[in-house]
Design a protein around this nucleic acid. Structure first.
Lengths: 204, 204
DNA sequence: ACTAAAATGTATATATTAATATCAATAGTT
DNA sequence: AACTATTGATATTAATATATACATTTTAGT
């Protein structure tokens, strides 16, 4: 039944999801593939094709029911299954992510934030107290967390990653501009901001 | 001569670039496609294929010269041509980006940061004074800037985008979880953090 | 000098993905 | 009943990615 969904489709589906949230705020009940397509400057048949991967169907002449479609996307992409994570590095980026309200809507629950700067430890960010790095391992174990969001300065990235591997973290969402060397059983997703920017501007 | 480089290749090239920077820090002069491939868990022939898109050649048994390869990537991806941008929104994310030292290495120069919060205006971030939004248009014109980095809260995203369009901004790097409606002559790149995260975790 | 090993560069094959176009069927509207 | 907008499905075409293979080149070791 379930078809494999490619990265580009996942990305588009989350954009559709943003649009649907917006339509709900505006109390609009229906949406057509054409409306979505125009907002994203893509082809409407592609939107329909993506939506057909969900277990959802629209109606001729009407389009899709906004609320239903939104829920379909959430189910398919697994928003409903909560994923627990820790943030490592309470700098601006770590703080921004800790405060980024939307993550919870998408099933990403951030449980704690860590730093090794004594001036930061103990301060509160979005209801979470910044903890000493040395407590990380115990917290990860206690709360059964295997995702770490790495936002430390680049020069500490590898040593911090080594520490995370020791703490049995299995997935690292890496916001540092560093390619991490980790064992095969640990997965890294490089949030390569500069790469993304260049994709955007390469053809300017 | 110049072949079109796809998004995925651009992304990989920037990761190679991170690795090369790291090798330079460690004073290592040569690097092989196999070494790069192992760090990124990809195939070494793909690394060679990517590198062949640059005007660079390696040596059998030796590999590539780290410094030369790094410069080749920079030339090809246009790091050398400076792109000027403004940040809109001096919250944590805007501040994080303003402080993110690596952007300058990659040819992205951030010239100013704007907010409409009177408590923030006048404060200094990374040498830049936070300016009132109303000054944006004049600054963009004076400095000939057409890229805006949008980091305001989601609910203000569309109205701010309208303002940017009026200020003749042509490229918006959108960090808000909102699909913006803009005229056809304005390009938006959605930095869809949640989409990226889901690509990472979808198969967990 | 010879051989073995390591690495590139290129070619090929296969699979996957993307993007667009087309059109019958359907459901509302007039 | 005719008209129109819209879906859903299929077809087409192009682009992309990935993996495998191998001839060639260069160095290192003996």
């Amino acid at each position: 039944m379930d078809k494999k969904i490619s990265d580009k489709v996942i990305n588009r589906l989350t954009l559709y999801h943003c649009i649907l949230s917006d339509f709900i705020d505006k109390n609009i009940e229906h949406i057509s593939s054409k409306q979505i397509a125009e907002l994203l400057h893509i082809d409407d048949s592609q939107v329909r094709k993506d939506i057909n991967l969900l277990n959802n169907s629209g109606k001729s002449r009407i389009g899709y029911i906004v609320k239903e479609l939104k829920i379909s996307i959430e189910k398919t992409l697994g928003f409903k299954k909560t994923k627990k994570a820790l943030i490592i590095g309470a700098g601006n980026l770590g703080t921004a992510i800790a405060n980024y309200g939307n993550f919870t809507d998408y099933g990403l629950k951030i449980l704690a934030i860590f730093d090794n700067d004594k001036n930061k430890i103990g301060k509160i960010i979005n209801g979470m107290e910044i903890q000493n790095m040395y407590e990380l391992s115990a917290t990860a174990l206690k709360e059964d967390i295997d995702i770490a969001i790495l936002t430390v300065p680049g020069k500490y990235a590898q040593s911090t990653a080594d520490f995370l591997v020791n703490a049995h973290i299995k997935y690292i969402w890496n916001f540092t501009p560093t390619v991490l060397s980790v064992p095969n059983n640990v997965q890294v997703w490089n949030e390569n901001l500069m790469g993304n920017f260049l994709q955007f501007t390469y053809n300017i």
